[in-house]
Design a protein around this nucleic acid. Structure first.
Length: 564
RNA sequence: UGGGAUGUCGCCAAGCGGUAAGGCACGGGACUUUGACUCCCGCAUUCGUAGGUUCAAAUCCUGCCAUCCCAGCCA
């Protein structure tokens, strides 16, 4: 994958995972002479979000960096929460981000038969037993954080009985929840995960791949190390909350016959301020129809970010720059936005647009006349060529580009002031027309015929340049302006119920009337520049023909601050 | 005296015994046919804290403090 953007700015020092990997593949290391093999193992129970991008970039990125491989694996061991819709969206989003798992696409469910056999191996070794305790009893006997647990009365069952019972669990002889298979470890361990964890439960639910073939399903702690080992994963990279599962991970790997011995390494999850990353809460928004869907532009999902105009490169760069550590972190939205602007600035083709149109009439420009100008598509890259812009007496400009009574340090249009229409002419404002309510509905100006192209014949400096669109050729489009969806200080501190109380304006389209917005030379896939302040990037592919979606907060960087 | 982890600028983050990189944000200036971009300049005498070892510590040792994770038949 080519890193188009300033590679030199990317972190040059190695993070701790890289150090571990290099140690492992170095002479004398655990994986000396082996290929680094990682995996990204999402559970298909929701859409991927920006937080997953970190895990994706780390796993695929590290494999790539060390000439290794990275598998994509659906960790589908809990049929009650999973669905094919999610396995498809996950693949789409990872591809969009720019990563390729080639043919290495796996499902944990493919290993169910093998896992079942390995569970029996554990039983035969006297390391697992069938427990008849109810969920409630199990919890009570597990003890607390400060008190040890109590051994299950079923802990001493014979191997033969355990084998028989486990086989009958699989055969469907018992009701859901009636029995579990537990690993026999240590009920007094300080690590709760080691207090005879349940490794198989009885659960009658339709599995999106295996259908009703199974009524017992392995638990994460048992399944995951096996999945990794069967795929010969060398480095199982996961987030920090699994740190105290590592002893159990190792226990499984050590006590069951497996082809390899993966090493689990944990890193801190990505936190973004003002952003809800909890899958449960995102699902709530979708299910309660508070958003259009998982790909609503206000969602922090990859598909939402995509619709909002985020580019894969910007997200990859963001993840790369944020770094990898074990420190709990909350990264500024502004940093993500910066990464987008950086990419857009370098690669986006510019197009002019106005979102709140105000009529501009050039009183000294002949009625019926028109002309065209050539404009560079991207000042950062001449190779992007030029486009033609049309021009006539009647134009649209942005409402905020005119002030009858200019604020201090306002350089744009006001009576008596000169401004440049980008790529076209210098104009001088001569007045405005108001409606019966006193609202400005039209701005009047005279153009300087000597300034074709935008430069004054006498070389005088023009303080400001504004965008415009020719009303004769403008394309009308509905613009949907979204604000950020989550703007509470600490969204995760609040319960999901707070979502109903947030400002309705941030949930609704800010400008719900059909804006008479105009776009010139709009083409699919192009990024748009918005006024002079930044860019907006409607993702036409993902919107209806007449709807352009963008996020003002993300794509605009205000530089004119009234009163400043 | 449960177990595990983490504490370096507002936010990320280098640093691994030799005297605090970088990015974002922010402030100031230059430039500019996007008040964008770009470019300069500024922005931690200090590394949670208290001691100790050392010629020398953010880096080693000890104690303390703070925060996070773990008591799903979720992942």
């Amino acid at each position: 994958m080519a890193e188009e953007i300033k590679e030199s700015l990317l972190p040059e020092s190695k993070h701790f995972i890289q150090a571990f990997i290099e140690e492992d593949i170095a002479p004398g290391g655990q994986y000396e002479g082996k290929t680094v093999h990682t995996r990204f193992p999402p559970e298909p129970n929701g859409y991927l979000h920006i937080g997953h991008a970190k895990a994706i970039c780390i796993n695929f990125g590290l494999a790539e960096q060390y000439n290794g491989l990275c598998n994509l694996r659906m960790d589908d061991t809990n049929p009650s929460k999973e669905d094919v819709e999610y396995v498809e969206s996950i693949q789409e989003d990872i591809r969009w981000l720019g990563f390729d798992w080639a043919e290495r696409f796996y499902f944990a469910s493919d290993y169910f038969p093998k896992m079942y056999e390995l569970a029996k191996e554990l039983i035969r070794k006297g390391l697992a037993y069938v427990c008849d305790l109810t969920a409630e009893e199990t919890r009570q006997m597990r003890g607390t954080l400060t008190e040890p647990g109590v051994n299950s009365p079923y802990r001493k069952r014979s191997v033969a009985e355990n084998l028989d019972l486990f086989e009958r669990m699989k055969a469907g002889e018992f009701a859901d929840g009636a029995r579990t298979l537990r690993a026999k470890i240590d009920m007094s361990s300080g690590n709760m995960n080691m207090r005879d964890p349940v490794i198989y439960r009885i659960l009658r639910a339709h599995h999106h791949r295996t259908g009703n073939a199974w009524c017992i399903y392995p638990m994460y702690d048992f399944a995951h190390p096996i999945e990794d080992a069967l795929e010969c994963i060398t480095h199982s990279l996961c987030s920090i909350e699994f740190e105290d599962h590592r002893p159990l991970y190792d226990w499984v790997v050590d006590n069951v016959t497996l082809p390899s011995r993966p090493r689990q390494i944990e890193f801190a999850r990505l936190g973004l301020n003002y952003t809800v990353m909890s899958k449960r809460k995102l699902r709530y928004l979708v299910e309660e129809n508070l958003v259009d869907g998982w790909d609503d532009p206000r969602m922090p999902t990859l598909s939402g970010l995509r619709r909002r105009g985020y580019t894969p490169l910007s997200i990859r760069n963001f993840i790369s720059r944020v770094g990898v550590s074990k420190v709990p972190n909350t990264v500024d939205q502004a940093f993500l936005e910066f990464c987008l602007r950086e990419d857009l600035n370098a690669h986006a083709r510019r197009v002019m647009a106005v979102t709140r149109p105000l009529k501009l009439t050039l009183t000294n420009y002949p009625e019926g006349q028109s002309e065209t100008f050539m404009a560079e598509n991207n000042p950062e890259n001449p190779a992007d060529g030029q486009r033609e812009i049309s021009f006539s007496k009647h134009l649209w400009i942005e409402e905020e580009d005119f002030m009858e009574e200019p604020a201090r340090k306002y350089f744009r249009l006001f009576p008596g002031n000169e401004v440049r229409l980008k790529h076209a002419y210098i104009i001088k404002c001569t007045g405005c027309v108001k409606d019966e309510n006193g609202k400005v509905i039209e701005v009047l100006a005279e153009y300087d015929p000597q300034s074709r192209g935008g430069s004054a014949a006498d070389g005088r400096k023009i303080k400001s340049t504004i965008h415009f669109v020719d009303s004769a050729t403008a394309i009308n489009a509905e613009l949907r302006l979204y604000d950020r969806l989550f703007t509470v200080e600490d969204p995760d501190a609040a319960d999901v119920s707070y979502l109903e109380t947030i400002n309705p304006h941030s949930l609704e389209v800010l400008n719900n009337a059909k804006l008479e917005a105009s776009l010139a030379s709009a083409k699919k896939g192009e990024a748009f520049q918005f006024l002079r302040m930044g860019y907006f990037t409607p993702d036409l592919e993902h919107s209806t023909d007449d709807a352009l979606v963008f996020n003002r907060a993300v794509t605009l960087k205000d530089s004119y601050k009234p009163g400043k």
